[in-house]
Design a binder for these strands. Structure first.
Lengths: 210, 210
DNA sequence: ATAAAATATGACTACTGGTCATGTATTAAA
DNA sequence: TTTAATACATGACCAGTAGTCATATTTTAT
């Protein structure tokens, strides 16, 4: 029987609608200035219904972050030129990330939020698994690093897994810094661009083989 | 007359007492689970009085972060061996930062909080200036980098200012990652230590001259 | 047609950051 | 010493909001 399947689809659809509504509200007014009542109104549902589909405001926000990661992963994929070396691919991915932050700064803020807090949501085993499944750009990055190690363009004394996580965390630090500390950066008489370029230069030297 | 000065001192003292109390409460229960009433009780003052000395809960938290930066800066200073090269000093500072996070994880959380949010408190010009004054470890780091460029042990194609900010932001990314994502890291079968070592290795290669 | 299950509602509660009218202590002036 | 003025302290109170739950409606199964 297809009824339960249809119901499942509808439920999924409604979850999506709620996230759509939340996105509009959160992106417009910021997470902390948005209320669940506003989200409910935007979704044309009652507040109680939101809690039928999500455990908390934070969980909706987490869903937005998941969307962000999906978009980011797609941009990573698109950025790759198959005929280039793993090392060159790495630079392409880096550029794609910078691009993503420029184009989708609101989505990036959602990523920052969950990168910088040991969110209770992530405490569940299955959410950890999520982190390394479809959603996550990191897994793809590991592949590219592996390719670079295999083709001899990336240093081989650090495992692909560790290297990928290191670069991911580092780069998040940089992007977080330039996207939340603009005033301090300009006060110091530096340009965000310079910091990003500097990051690329350091990494290039830092991971190149020999 | 010394009266107004004494009053000034007393006021400063009281501010400190309040921050002491807040620290106890925040560190024990976490910022979000702590209430101003609890802080008031711990400080043996009424809640209204807290607001005579601080504009908001966030401002008290900001003060805790400032303390964290002072401690960190001291550890940076202590870590330096005068007779070594700028390049070697950089590694010492890096180690000192890792040390700080281990020893003072609560203080580090306060730093993370303000590194990862474009906090409204920092919007004022004078707070930006603070960022580069007594409190801030970054200024000292710039000096060390400059030393390294001068003694030829650190690459000179990136300005000391830019390089320092880049490394600072990067390293924050790493430390934030390992201190908030332990579960994900271990789930991936990696050790936090490995990521930190990997970071050091990349940076060493990345900033060494020639 | 009817019972049961699933879904939706919005008034309500609990909590908490921040305020403010009302003190009380301290200092300056008469 | 008395009085006025200023600075400091208080806690009952307010406003805003995440999350709940008894009730109502719709959908499905019998």
């Amino acid at each position: 029987m297809g009824i339960s399947e249809r119901k499942e689809r509808e439920k999924e659809q409604r979850r999506n609608d709620i996230v759509d509504a939340a996105e509009k509200v959160f992106f417009k007014k910021g997470l902390n200035n948005s209320t669940m009542d506003e989200v409910a109104e935007e979704a044309e549902l009652s507040k109680g219904t939101l809690y039928l589909y999500f455990k908390s405001k934070e969980e909706i926000h987490f869903e937005i972050k998941s969307r962000a990661l999906i978009i980011l992963k797609k941009m990573f994929h698109k950025s790759i030129s198959e005929n280039k070396t793993g090392f060159e691919n790495c630079a392409e991915i880096g550029k794609a990330y910078v691009d993503f932050v420029k184009k989708h700064s609101n989505y990036y803020k959602a990523i920052i939020h969950f990168e910088s807090s040991d969110c209770s949501i992530c405490e569940f085993r299955d959410k950890c698994e999520d982190f390394f499944k479809e959603d996550n750009p990191l897994e793809f990055f590991v592949q590219i690093i592996s390719k670079g190690i295999a083709d001899g363009t990336i240093r081989s004394d650090i495992s692909a897994n560790v290297l990928a996580q290191t670069l991911w965390a580092q780069t998040n630090g940089i992007l977080q810094f330039v996207s939340t500390k603009q005033k301090i950066i300009e006060f110091a008489g530096v340009k965000a661009e310079d910091i990003i370029n500097s990051q690329f230069e350091i990494i290039k030297k830092g991971i190149k083989n020999k």
